[in-house]
Structures are given as structure tokens and as C-alpha cells.
């Protein structure tokens, strides 16, 4: 898949996962660790770390150097309250859903199968943080 649409989509998805790991790290410092959002933040952080590692392994297996995390990320707006945190995660999961949907379209075989599952995962995590359900998560207007 070197130089293929699948590789480009996998790299874009990986870049999105780096950003998601950063965002969940920020959010983990804001939400009440003993509350419902604390549990969601820990679960989301772990899921995105796993997915990041999985994509890095897939790319290396193809002799492709995985894109690295950025040295720093700018937040769309400050995150100081749980409402800010939820807004940020809804944006992050929506962005991940778009990337996963693009990866489904651009890939085949095992990687596509995983991307199909990731798209559902992003859709349900967004829902848990207050996003409305959509007919076509990651694809169409809601």
C-alpha cells in the first residue's frame, strides 16, 4: 500500500489519533476523576492510544514511517470546565469519525475491517459526550 490512497488515509487517521490522545490528556486534567466523565476520559484515552499504536504497527509492517505527533497542539478554545471538555471531545470524535470513514473507503481487507469498527467507536464515544446521533456519522451532515 506504499504511496497508495490507503497509506495516505492511514497516515491521516494516525495524525488524528495523535491529536485525540493529546485532547484526552487535556480533558483528563479537567474532569472530575471520580465522576462519569472521568471514566469516559480514561476509557477514551486508552482506546485512542491503542489505535495509535495499532496504526503505527500497520504502517511499519509496510516499511512506511508513521507520522509522528506534533510537538504541540493548539486547542480551539480554552478547556477549563467539564462543558469545555465535552465540547472538545465531541469535536475530536467527530473528526476521528470522518478520518475513519475515509480510511474505510480507501483501504481493503483487515485494515478496512478495523476502520469499520473504529467508525462505530468514534460515533458512540461522541454520543456519550453529548453529541446528537446522526444518520451517517463521519460522512454526511447530521
Amino acid at each position: 500500500m506504499t504511496g497508495s490512497p490507503g497509506e495516505a488515509a492511514a497516515q491521516a487517521t494516525l495524525a488524528g489519533e495523535h491529536a485525540a490522545v493529546y485532547a484526552y490528556g487535556v480533558v483528563g486534567g479537567v474532569v472530575d476523576p471520580s465522576g462519569a466523565l472521568g471514566g469516559l476520559a480514561r476509557a477514551g484515552y486508552g482506546a485512542h492510544v491503542n489505535r495509535r499504536d495499532r496504526l503505527e504497527r500497520s504502517l511499519r509492517a509496510l516499511d512506511v514511517e508513521p507520522v509522528a505527533a506534533e510537538p504541540g497542539y493548539a486547542l480551539p478554545r480554552p478547556v477549563t470546565t467539564e462543558a469545555d471538555a465535552a465540547r472538545l471531545i465531541r469535536r475530536v470524535e467527530d473528526r476521528c469519525a470522518v478520518l475513519h470513514a475515509a480510511l474505510v473507503a480507501a483501504s481493503t481487507g483487515e485494515l478496512r475491517g478495523e476502520a469499520v469498527g473504529w467508525l462505530s467507536d468514534a460515533a458512540t464515544r461522541g454520543l456519550a459526550w453529548g453529541a446528537p446521533p446522526a444518520a451517517f456519522p463521519g460522512v454526511g451532515p447530521t
Partner: peptide, 19 residues
């Protein structure tokens, strides 16, 4: 690929419904 994406997205919508 476009059909695969639409099917995967519809399945993601249904994952939300199940919640």
C-alpha cells in the same frame, strides 16, 4: 470504497441507536 464507507457509517449510526 464509497459504498463501504456508507455501509460502515450506517452501521455506526446503528451503534448509536443501540446505546
Amino acid at each position: 470504497g464509497a459504498l463501504a464507507r456508507a455501509l460502515a457509517s450506517a452501521a455506526a449510526c446503528q451503534s448509536q441507536h443501540l446505546v
